[in-house]
Computed example of a mutant assay.
Amino acid sequence: MKTRHYLGIMLLFIALFQSCKKDETRAILASDEGIKPATLSLDKNNVTLSKDNAKDTVLHLTMIQPDFGFQAAVTNVLQFGLKGDNFKTVKEVVIPSGRTTVGFTGYELNSYLLSLGVPTGTASDFDVRLKSSINAKITVVFSALASLKAVPFASTSYLYVPGAYQGWDPATAESLVSPTSNGIYTGIILFPEVNSEFKITTERNWANSYGQTADGKIAFNGGGNIKAPRAGNLEIEVNTTANTISFKDHNWGIIGSATPKGWDADTDMKFDNANQVWKLTVSLTAGEIKFRKNHDWGTNFGGANGTLAAGGANIAVASAGTYTIVVDFNANTYTLTKK
């Protein structure tokens, strides 16, 4: 009986040892060497974009999820870059969780490609890849490149927003932009106070304008002054087909040990609609900063060497001084220029 008892203990010990070895193997598979990047394929590699196919789905991508060696929630981001540029200028599009196929309309693809600064009406070559990550401790991996040749079309149009916030001058007013000229215009404007009044003009003059007729409704060459529902940076969307206007908070600020408010609160930036960048001139101390949206950690960017990364590392500020900060969330770049 003792022999059986000892034999049972030995078998249990061997089983536990083997289980530990399996866990050890699984940890090794989770190392950089064991990671398998996602695979990406496009249903076409040559597309001509125009207003005629702008509402059609013009490009499909199919992907196989990456394998990090263990079960984990993966974030996949599709990157468009200029061919041979090594993604120095990049447009990123987050792929919804769990999706293995995604389609893009002509409007969507056109706006992505135009954000890279390519000319319209002529073919340009692009590199496309998937960036996959699970957390900051595991190396980001990239799929093999897919090639795309595309001809974007010119379609950008503007509206202008003169109002009390800038002295009612259409010539210097902030703008709303429609990248696809589809009647939907957006822009971000800093209003100093609630109920700050403004109108919307079609040119930088008062020849034609939109006013408000009811909450969320506007009329061409009619209605009264429109009122900002609250103070702060507000993203305005105007639909000139439906004659509607809406507002939502859209603010970016800096936070961190180098900023005036430390890690306790944001110092807000201002959006430059004409150049589609966020700007701030501010006194900083030696320390660290990050960029945060709408005063919340749900969306934040860090980075290094002028390149932004979602949820990335704190950005170092080497010495105290007055800095001009410019951030481009389309290209995911930033500059800190000491005066």
Score class of each variant (00 low, 15 high):
residue 215 D to P: 15
residue 233 N to I: 06
residue 113 L to A: 05
residue 128 V to C: 04
residue 254 I to C: 04
residue 250 H to W: 14
residue 149 K to I: 10
residue 31 S to T: 15
residue 17 F to R: 11
residue 115 S to L: 11
residue 296 D to F: 11
residue 225 N to H: 09
residue 243 N to K: 11
residue 321 G to K: 05
residue 27 A to V: 14
residue 272 D to I: 02
residue 156 T to H: 04
residue 84 G to W: 09
residue 55 K to H: 11
residue 135 N to A: 03
residue 267 T to S: 03
residue 208 N to G: 06
residue 139 T to L: 04
residue 16 L to F: 15
residue 266 D to Y: 06
residue 226 I to Y: 01
residue 124 S to K: 08
residue 285 T to L: 03
residue 209 S to E: 03
residue 329 F to S: 10
residue 120 T to V: 15
residue 243 N to D: 05
residue 248 K to E: 10
residue 280 L to S: 10
residue 335 T to E: 02
residue 35 I to K: 09
residue 319 S to R: 05
residue 23 D to V: 10
residue 334 Y to C: 03
residue 91 K to W: 13
residue 253 G to M: 10
residue 114 L to F: 11
residue 78 L to T: 11
residue 288 E to W: 11
residue 50 S to L: 05
residue 16 L to C: 14
residue 308 L to C: 09
residue 245 I to Q: 00
residue 237 E to G: 05
residue 218 I to T: 04
residue 174 E to F: 05
residue 266 D to F: 04
residue 25 T to N: 13
residue 260 P to R: 12
residue 221 N to C: 02
residue 37 P to T: 12
residue 238 V to A: 01
residue 12 L to P: 02
residue 143 S to P: 05
residue 112 Y to M: 07
residue 130 L to S: 02
residue 195 N to D: 15
residue 331 A to G: 11
residue 294 N to F: 10
residue 135 N to F: 04
residue 235 E to Y: 12
residue 6 Y to K: 12
residue 192 P to L: 08
residue 246 S to H: 07
residue 36 K to H: 10
residue 279 K to Q: 15
residue 163 G to H: 02
residue 238 V to H: 05
residue 58 V to R: 07
residue 306 G to R: 00
residue 329 F to E: 01
residue 238 V to R: 08
residue 308 L to A: 05
residue 326 V to N: 08
residue 123 A to K: 15
residue 79 Q to E: 01
residue 201 T to F: 01
residue 16 L to I: 15
residue 299 T to L: 09
residue 101 T to N: 14
residue 236 I to K: 07
residue 167 G to C: 05
residue 95 I to Y: 00
residue 286 A to H: 08
residue 122 T to W: 01
residue 152 P to M: 06
residue 203 E to I: 08
residue 247 F to I: 08
residue 313 A to Q: 09
residue 99 R to M: 14
residue 182 N to K: 07
residue 49 L to S: 07
residue 301 F to D: 05
residue 109 L to D: 03
residue 298 G to F: 14
residue 74 V to Q: 10
residue 82 L to G: 07
residue 37 P to A: 04
residue 244 T to H: 02
residue 161 V to S: 00
residue 94 V to N: 04
residue 294 N to L: 04
residue 330 N to H: 08
residue 255 I to D: 14
residue 18 Q to N: 14
residue 272 D to T: 01
residue 197 E to Q: 12
residue 277 V to A: 04
residue 49 L to I: 03
residue 66 P to G: 02
residue 290 K to M: 12
residue 176 L to K: 03
residue 80 F to E: 01
residue 305 N to Y: 13
residue 214 A to Q: 09
residue 77 V to T: 15
residue 333 T to H: 07
residue 236 I to Y: 01
residue 123 A to S: 12
residue 69 G to W: 00
residue 146 A to R: 00
residue 86 N to A: 13
residue 162 P to D: 00
residue 293 K to W: 14
residue 331 A to H: 13
residue 169 D to V: 12
residue 297 W to H: 07
residue 281 T to M: 09
residue 120 T to I: 12
residue 75 T to S: 06
residue 322 T to M: 08
residue 191 F to Y: 15
residue 225 N to T: 13
residue 113 L to H: 11
residue 20 C to Q: 14
residue 71 Q to G: 04
residue 180 T to F: 07
residue 61 L to Q: 00
residue 92 E to W: 10
residue 288 E to C: 02
residue 216 G to K: 06
residue 172 T to M: 03
residue 275 N to F: 12
residue 113 L to F: 15
residue 257 S to L: 06
residue 287 G to S: 01
residue 48 T to M: 07
residue 106 G to D: 13
residue 189 I to G: 00
residue 224 G to Y: 08
residue 275 N to I: 02
residue 257 S to T: 02
residue 310 A to G: 06
residue 134 I to C: 06
